[in-house]
Amino acid sequence: MPSIAWNQEKLDWNIAGDENGKNPNVLSELKWRKLRGPELGISSVVTLSPEVEAMVSISHFYITQGIVNDSDYASDNRTGKTADFDFKADRGHATSARAEIYYSIRKTEKFCLAAHTGYFGRYQTLYMLDGEQPLVVGKELKSTYKPRWHGIILGLNTAYHVDQWHVWMGISGLYFPRYSANANWNLQEEFNHPISFTHKAKGMGWEAYLQLQRQVAKAIYPFLQVGYTGLTTRTGTDQLFKTDGTSLTTQLNDVNSSSFRIGLGARIQF
Rank of each mutant, 00 (worst) to 15 (best):
K139Q: 14
C112N: 15
E189K: 07
W6D: 09
P134M: 10
N192G: 12
S257D: 02
Y103C: 07
Y62D: 10
H166I: 13
A83F: 10
L135G: 02
A181R: 00
G230E: 02
Q124W: 02
G92C: 11
I67T: 15
A219F: 10
S28V: 11
S96Y: 03
Q269M: 04
L264M: 12
Y62M: 03
S75D: 13
G17V: 10
R261A: 15
V52F: 14
L126Q: 02
Y127C: 05
S75A: 14
I171D: 00
T246A: 01
S104H: 12
S104R: 08
K242V: 15
V167F: 14
H116Q: 10
I105L: 15
G170D: 05
K146Y: 01
I42E: 00
S44C: 13
A115S: 15
A183C: 08
V26G: 02
E132S: 14
W185P: 00
Q269G: 04
I105M: 14
E109Y: 10
W168S: 04
D163Q: 09
Y119D: 13
K202H: 13
V52S: 07
A208I: 12
N23D: 12
Q213D: 09
F223H: 11
E39R: 11
P177N: 08
N14L: 11
N77M: 09
A83V: 07
E51K: 08
H166V: 10
Y221Q: 02
S44Q: 10
R178I: 08
F260Q: 06
L135D: 01
N77Q: 06
L224D: 01
D18A: 07
F111V: 10
V136Y: 04
E53M: 06
W149N: 01
G227D: 01
R267M: 09
A201W: 07
F87K: 01
R122I: 09
A16K: 02
T198W: 00
A89I: 14
R267P: 03
F111R: 04
H199W: 12
T233N: 04
L212E: 00
T144P: 08
T235F: 07
I67Y: 06
Q251K: 10
A181G: 07
I171N: 05
K110H: 14
P50A: 08
K10M: 11
E39D: 07
T158F: 11
K146I: 01
A97N: 04
R267E: 13
H166E: 13
F191N: 09
D130I: 06
L212C: 08
W168C: 05
N256Y: 14
A83G: 06
N23W: 04
N25P: 06
M1H: 04
T117G: 15
V56C: 02
E9Q: 13
T158R: 03
P134N: 04
V226P: 07
V46I: 14
H199G: 08
N69G: 15
A183D: 11
R91W: 06
Q239S: 10
P147Y: 01
L174K: 00
D72K: 03
G118W: 11
D86A: 14
E140G: 03
V162Q: 09
I101C: 07
Q213E: 12
R214D: 02
R78T: 13
A83M: 06
T47P: 00
P24C: 08
P194H: 05
G203T: 05
S258H: 15
D70C: 13
G263A: 12
